[in-house]
Amino acid sequence: MYQKMLLSEKVAETIMTSIKNDFYKVGDQMPNEIQLAEELGVSRATLREAIKILISRKVLEVKRGIGTFVSEKTEDEQHDFSLESINIYTQKMEILRIMKHLDEEELQAFQHLSWNDQQTIKSRFESILHVEKSKIDMDLTNIYITGLLETIEIIALRRHSSFKHRLIKQTHEAVKIFLETIVPKEGTIICQLIKNIVEALGQDEVVLIFDEFMMQLGFYLQEE
């Protein structure tokens, strides 16, 4: 489902998504190389390659002595790329691919948070998974998925990754829109995988479980 691609291409897609979702507008100056590389969790060399890709696509442009900017477009070329205006349903696989890349990094970073932050996040996550069945309307799977997405957003916030948090939140908002079209099914494998992710937080195996979750999420979102 997810084609292998160079890390620089993934980073280029991430930056492109931030522009499409109006995080950066036409004419805006991009953060400096050190700041942006740190926010995205990649090396400066990888970031440079990603920037080169976007410059070649005329998404970004370099103004010598000033910095890198979102390319100016003629009036005919300007488009509204906000989440509300684009047809996200035709971009579903791209959104899931970007989400997988961003979220996986946050789950891996969980082990580097303070002990107090880890316990707070894990307790909140577990409380969502123990919601009483009688209080919900056959929507358990979607509640679990939403709980996982919100937990990942909190990890990004606790790591003070404001740029990544914004991108993550944008991709999650799209997934939540997809979920609204699904007729919930009780007892899906997704619920068990999310429980396994909670138990594996702070361990290397969380990545493998999350990979399986993303595959199952892709199948689940094809059922609308």
Results as ranks from 00 to 15, higher is better:
165 H>P: 00
40 L>Q: 10
89 Y>T: 04
223 E>N: 09
206 V>S: 04
63 K>F: 12
184 P>M: 07
24 Y>R: 13
168 I>K: 06
60 L>I: 07
127 S>D: 15
195 K>A: 08
188 T>S: 01
115 W>L: 13
197 I>L: 05
209 I>P: 01
190 I>C: 02
9 E>G: 06
200 A>Y: 07
1 M>V: 12
11 V>G: 08
139 D>Q: 08
84 E>P: 02
191 C>D: 03
50 A>F: 06
115 W>E: 12
196 N>F: 05
154 I>K: 15
167 L>I: 13
51 I>F: 07
58 K>S: 14
95 I>R: 05
208 L>W: 10
82 S>W: 04
201 L>A: 02
222 Q>F: 05
24 Y>Q: 06
188 T>D: 00
75 E>Q: 12
216 Q>W: 00
219 F>L: 15
89 Y>E: 11
73 K>G: 03
71 S>F: 03
182 I>H: 00
39 E>R: 09
61 E>W: 08
56 S>A: 11
8 S>G: 06
207 V>N: 01
4 K>V: 12
186 E>A: 01
137 D>M: 10
155 I>N: 09
99 M>E: 09
218 G>T: 09
63 K>R: 15
95 I>G: 00
212 E>F: 01
222 Q>A: 12
134 S>D: 14
4 K>C: 09
215 M>I: 11
198 V>E: 10
1 M>Y: 10
78 Q>F: 05
91 Q>C: 07
223 E>Q: 15
210 F>I: 06
204 D>W: 08
185 K>G: 06
107 L>A: 08
8 S>P: 02
147 G>L: 06
48 R>V: 00
177 I>C: 04
223 E>T: 13
201 L>K: 09
15 I>W: 00
117 D>F: 13
174 A>P: 01
39 E>T: 11
15 I>R: 03
179 L>H: 04
129 L>V: 02
72 E>C: 08
31 P>L: 05
62 V>Y: 13
116 N>P: 10
152 I>K: 03
73 K>W: 01
165 H>D: 08
91 Q>K: 13
158 R>P: 03
90 T>Q: 11
159 R>D: 06
144 Y>N: 03
33 E>P: 11
67 G>R: 10
150 E>G: 10
137 D>T: 12
191 C>H: 08
47 L>H: 09
89 Y>P: 03
136 I>P: 00
23 F>W: 10
51 I>M: 11
99 M>S: 12
105 E>P: 04
10 K>S: 14
104 E>N: 08
65 G>M: 10
134 S>R: 14
203 Q>N: 15
148 L>H: 02
151 T>E: 09
29 Q>A: 10
142 N>C: 04
185 K>I: 14
168 I>V: 12
192 Q>W: 04
88 I>S: 04
155 I>D: 07
82 S>K: 09
106 E>H: 05
152 I>Y: 01
64 R>G: 11
126 E>T: 11
129 L>A: 03
98 I>F: 03
72 E>I: 14
135 K>F: 09
7 L>F: 04
209 I>E: 04
41 G>V: 11
162 S>Q: 10
169 K>E: 13
111 Q>H: 08
123 S>I: 10
51 I>H: 06
221 L>V: 00
27 G>E: 10
143 I>E: 07
25 K>Y: 12
180 E>T: 12
152 I>S: 01
